[in-house]
């Protein structure tokens, strides 16, 4: 088994090919393949509704940082570089405060990603209305919501598998 058999989840969870947990993961191919397919639909979808692959990668990196997985953030930083980064996108990825000069559309997206990643319980109708006022279309609101939710899912899978790899 070569390194190419490792996916992002294996690598970031510290699983080696041939290890017990690597083998256990492969007993659930629908989880392994399903997670990778979901990643494509939120990070690099065929229909992005005007939310670029680069913006999506920058947001994913930012959320991973806020969740405390610098290693996951670094992977999304590489994807961002491949998609074509710029100083504004790099600032989003870094977790920096939104610049005062940022446009309302981008600021609203960043605010929402931060809120729903960190304190989803506090979100309300007003938060969706803010996105609409900032000019997001309905498909953009759904696409953003799915992206935010995916990264939060992925980070939890990674953390869980990493801990499981540590026990007997």
């Amino acid at each position: 088994m070569g390194m190419s058999d490792l996916d992002q989840i294996d690598i970031l969870s510290g699983l080696k090919p041939g290890s017990e947990l690597y083998a256990i993961r492969r007993e659930r191919p629908e989880f392994v393949e399903g997670t990778e397919l979901c990643r494509e639909t939120v990070l690099s979808p065929n229909h992005g509704f005007g939310l670029s692959h680069a913006l999506r990668a920058a947001l994913a990196s930012r959320m991973a940082r806020f969740i405390g997985r610098e290693d996951l953030a670094a992977v999304y930083d590489l994807i961002l570089d491949d998609a074509g980064s710029d100083p504004d996108l790099a600032a989003i990825a870094s977790g920096a405060e939104t610049a005062a000069s940022a446009d309302a559309f981008t600021s609203a997206i960043i605010r929402h990603a931060d809120l729903v990643t960190q304190t989803p319980r506090n979100s309300s109708r007003g938060d969706i209305e803010r996105l609409e006022k900032a000019g997001l279309s309905k498909p953009q609101i759904i696409a953003l919501s799915e992206l935010i939710a995916f990264v939060n899912y992925e980070a939890r899978v990674l953390v869980g598998l990493s801990l499981l790899e540590e026990v007997e």
Binding site: F31, V116, P120, S123, I148, A149, N152, Y153, V157
Partner: peptide, 23 residues
């Protein structure tokens, strides 16, 4: 361990589902 993998995924996928339904 296989059951714990299932538990991790069930909690994690609700980290996803909750972030849709509740927002």
């Amino acid at each position: 361990k296989a059951e714990i993998v299932d538990l991790i995924h069930s909690a994690a996928i609700f980290g996803w589902a909750n972030r849709l339904m509740h927002t």
